[in-house]
């Protein structure tokens, strides 16, 4: 479903070239929950931004559903692929001057979905994320957990095949974190959505992910099922994350 081969990304900084990703390769299967884990500054978000076609890589190749979306230093903008993907950003990135309902229907508007279908879809999604009473509320009045659920509902609006999430629980308390984990499991099982989650929280990974790639200093240092990697961490960075 997602195939990343020899991906690299350099940033030009005042201090010189910064290698954010180096020879990163992994595959994500349809229907799985895949974790991209690593400490801050490891290159996780850069990787997610390349997968969501927001960032141009410096080399390598990214295939999504057998379509090349990035090759070498070029992004092959593919709006068809974009509409099969939902992205949930770390800061939620909700439209602050629009109500919850208008936020959720925004991707439908972008995709050119017939206006008569918007309201039903919004209501279904609000029921799904358990926020029916917040339909006409503005994001500023919501809690972190509620904003995250709106962001997830918005990402699901166009019934994506893949859901990408950047640190979806890092700003949430334990209770909200559990609620988001349950919601993501429900999305994966009921809607058959492949989930790619970027996180540094091991607890979340253990509860949610089936397979993971551990990133450290822009390289994949461990890769496999959660059980395999956590039982035999091969790299010091993985051990540090696990606290062993």
């Amino acid at each position: 479903m997602v195939k990343v081969s020899h991906l690299s990304k350099d940033f030009e900084t005042k201090e010189g070239k910064l290698e954010a990703l180096h020879d990163v390769s992994f595959e994500i299967k349809a229907g799985e929950i895949f974790g991209i884990i690593g400490k801050s500054g490891a290159g996780k978000t850069t990787l997610l931004r390349i997968l969501s076609q927001l960032e141009r890589p410096s080399g390598g190749e990214v295939l999504i559903n057998n379509s090349v979306i990035a090759k070498g230093d070029k992004v092959i903008t593919n709006n068809k692929i974009k509409k099969t993907m939902g992205v949930v950003f770390q800061g939620y990135n909700l439209l602050m001057q629009k109500t919850v309902a208008r936020n959720i229907e925004f991707p439908l508007k972008i995709a050119g979905v017939n206006k008569t279908k918007w309201d039903k879809r919004v209501n279904d999604l609000l029921r799904f994320v358990d926020l029916e009473d917040k339909k006409e509320a503005y994001p500023a009045t919501l809690s972190g957990g509620q904003k995250q659920r709106v962001a997830i509902a918005r990402a699901l609006a166009n019934s994506p095949k893949i859901l990408l999430l950047d640190e979806p629980t890092s700003a949430l308390d334990t209770l909200s974190t559990s609620a988001i984990i349950s919601l993501l499991q429900k999305i994966n099982q009921e809607e058959q959505v492949t989930i790619i989650i970027v996180t540094h929280e091991i607890g979340v990974v253990k509860k949610l992910c089936q397979r993971i790639a551990v990133i450290n200093e822009g390289k994949v240092v461990d890769y496999g099922t959660v059980q395999e990697v956590f039982a035999n961490p091969s790299n010091i960075a993985t051990k540090q994350l696990l606290g062993v």
Partner: peptide, 17 residues
């Protein structure tokens, strides 16, 4: 906030949208 623009670009929004 540039994050909002990112969200729209990731959805496939055109510049005019």
């Amino acid at each position: 906030d540039k994050g909002m623009i990112d969200a729209a670009v990731a959805m496939g929004a055109s510049k005019l949208q």
